[in-house]
Each structure stands twice: as C-alpha cells, then as structure tokens.
Computed example of a mutant assay.
Amino acid sequence: MHKWRHSLLAKQKAFPQHQYFEMSELKQDLRGLTESLVRRHTDFNSLQQYLDGYSVAGDALMAMQIPATILTARDDPVIPVGAFEQLRLPPNVELDIAEYGGHCGFIRGRNMTSFTDDYIAARFNALADGAPGR
C-alpha cells in the first residue's frame, strides 16, 4: 500500500467524526483519488480546474513583483523536480531545491519537526536586515 494511503487512513482514524473519503476511493491511483477528494471537499468542478487554479507553470509567476522563495525537494514523489527547474521566474523569485524533503515533509529528525520553521525565520530575518535570503 502506498504511503499516501496510509496517511489518509491515519487521518481518518485520528478524526473519525469527519468522512474524508470512501474506502473504495483508496483503491484508485493518486490522480483518481485526488479527483475524488477535489469533488468531495472543494468547490471546483473538475480536477483540471483545481490543478489550473494553483499552477505556476510557464510564465505564471513572471508578473510577481514581491520577493519570494520557492522551496522544493529533489526527492518529491508528487511533483518531479524537473517541473520546478523549467519554471520561468523573475529576478525577485528564488528557487531553492533541497536534496531531501519529500512532498512538503522537510523533516529534520525523529521528533518529526520540520526544518522549514527555521528556514522561513531566516528568510524573514534576512529581509528585515536588508540582506538577501541566503
């Protein structure tokens, strides 16, 4: 069974008062399950509409005028790192690719804390000091 299925089962067990999915939906592939969850839990009419709603592909970020950092991981099992490497970004948007981090994981130890807390704090501190984020 895929890790994401275990994660969903654990979430359902932790919050039995909510119905996040039907057990039969877990038999689908990730795309099929995502479509089921989008239809069940969002106002989007289709999976494609949902995906288009947060896509940053192509020139979508070129008009961005504020400084930003995109943090992703080379070992992300959901979004291949090549998709990030192909982004067209304005000079004020930094792409930071960590070797490890999975899909939003960025776990730094057995205590399951994320290194993103310190990462974000360092970025804000650098901005407050007038220095680049690194």
Rank of each mutant, 00 (worst) to 15 (best):
M64N: 12
T69Q: 11
D75Q: 04
T72Q: 09
D76K: 12
N45T: 05
M64D: 08
A63R: 10
F44Y: 15
Q48P: 00
Q65H: 15
T42I: 15
G53M: 01
D76G: 13
D75M: 09
G53D: 05
L71N: 10
A73H: 05
A57T: 14
R74L: 07
V56M: 06
S55R: 04
A60F: 04
Q65P: 07
F44D: 12
A73C: 14
A73F: 04
Q65A: 15
G53K: 01
L61K: 09
S46M: 03
A73D: 06
M64C: 15
T69G: 10
A57E: 10
Q65Y: 07
I66W: 15
D59Y: 04
D52K: 00
L47F: 11
L51G: 00
Q48D: 03
D52V: 00
F44W: 13
Q65I: 08
V56G: 08
F44N: 14
F44Q: 11
Q48C: 01
M62G: 02
R74I: 08
Y54F: 06
L47K: 02
P67Y: 12
T72P: 10
L47Y: 04
Y54D: 03
F44L: 05
S46Q: 03
D75G: 11
P77F: 04
L71M: 11
L71C: 08
A57M: 07
Y50Q: 01
R74M: 07
D59K: 14
G58I: 11
L61A: 10
R74F: 07
S46K: 03
N45Y: 02
P77L: 06
G53P: 02
Y50H: 05
D52C: 00
L71E: 08
D43T: 15
S46A: 05
L71W: 06
A63I: 02
D75T: 12
L61M: 13
Y54G: 08
D76R: 15
M64P: 06
L51D: 00
F44A: 12
Q65M: 10
A63K: 10
Q65F: 01
D76V: 08
T72D: 06
G58S: 11
A60T: 10
P77C: 08
L51Y: 01
L71Y: 07
I66M: 14
D59Q: 11
D59N: 14
F44P: 13
Y54A: 01
A68C: 15
A68W: 01
D43E: 14
Q65N: 13
I66Q: 13
S46C: 04
D76L: 11
P67S: 14
D52M: 00
L71S: 14
T42C: 12
L71I: 10
T42W: 14
D59A: 10
F44K: 08
T42L: 12
G58H: 10
